[in-house]
Simulated scan of single mutants.
Amino acid sequence: MDDAQPVATVVAAKPFQPGATRMVGFRRRSWFFRVLLGETAGFVVPGLAWFAVWKAVLPPPGAAAIVALSGAAEGAALGIAQWLTLREWHAGFSRTWILASAAGASVAWACGMTPSTAHDLGSPTWLSIALGVSLAPVLLLSLPGAQWLVLRRYVPKAWKWVIWSTAGWLLALPPTFIGPAILPSDASSLQIAATWAISGMAMAAIIAAFTGYAMSRILQSTVANLDAGTLRAPG
């Protein structure tokens, strides 16, 4: 009789198993209200920073740097709101999402501040316009692109998030320009604060609804492919 002991076979765990660690399904309603609250609150931070540097009459480069850095707080608030819902979908979803969101938002604010800063420094109008046009793609892609670096670890074809999210920001950003633009030059501090808050809330509502729909589509497709056995690896 062969008395050799059976050999245990060790199978490496698949690095990509979103369905296996899902706690609950992706909840669009939770995403909407969390993102609405997080983005609205986060948008107040660079707003306050802009108001403070404007009142302090800081040199344009320093003022722009402060506002851009404060944009990281907005990105972090948004990232936390989104991460809380993504963590319900995947228990181990990385907190790096929050850091990526903060970095992407800071870059976006830096791009947004560059044209006006150049104008304040005395550059010709055509240069400010050229800077705005050339930096627009970076502004729009910086946040979704940074988040894509994290999301691609969990879902295939994560590049779809960049497209969906960028489209959402295209729809959501106009209120933040329209609101301040209609303020009179002699607007009071209260009027400025109220306009900024309303504009931020409108932007947050649009981005919360749009990206919630987008993320649900992406994750549902991922789970469906996993259940059908057609999902092989992220791409």
Rank of each mutant, 00 (worst) to 15 (best):
G122C: 03
L78C: 04
T195P: 05
S142F: 00
P124N: 10
W164Q: 06
A181M: 09
T96R: 14
G145E: 03
A41I: 11
I206Q: 05
A63Y: 02
W159V: 10
F51G: 03
G79M: 07
S116H: 06
V53G: 03
G79R: 00
C111D: 01
L219N: 07
D2L: 12
Q5A: 15
W169N: 03
V162C: 02
T222D: 07
V57D: 14
T9Q: 14
W126F: 14
G79W: 02
M203N: 09
T21K: 14
A228P: 03
I198Q: 06
Q220M: 11
G38Y: 08
I80P: 02
N225V: 09
V162T: 09
A4H: 14
A209Y: 10
R153I: 05
H90C: 10
D186T: 08
T40W: 09
V45N: 08
P124V: 07
L84E: 12
K14Y: 10
L78P: 01
A65C: 07
G38N: 07
W97E: 02
F93H: 07
S221G: 15
L171P: 07
A20P: 06
T176E: 03
W161Q: 05
A63T: 04
L140S: 01
R22P: 03
A64R: 00
V35I: 12
M203Y: 09
T85H: 05
Y154R: 08
T21R: 15
A233R: 13
T40G: 07
A193R: 05
P234V: 13
A102M: 00
P61T: 06
A108Y: 00
I182Y: 08
K157C: 09
M113T: 01
E39S: 14
R27H: 15
S70D: 04
W164H: 11
P59M: 03
P59I: 05
F26Q: 04
L190T: 13
P60C: 06
I129E: 09
N225G: 11
S94Q: 05
I206A: 08
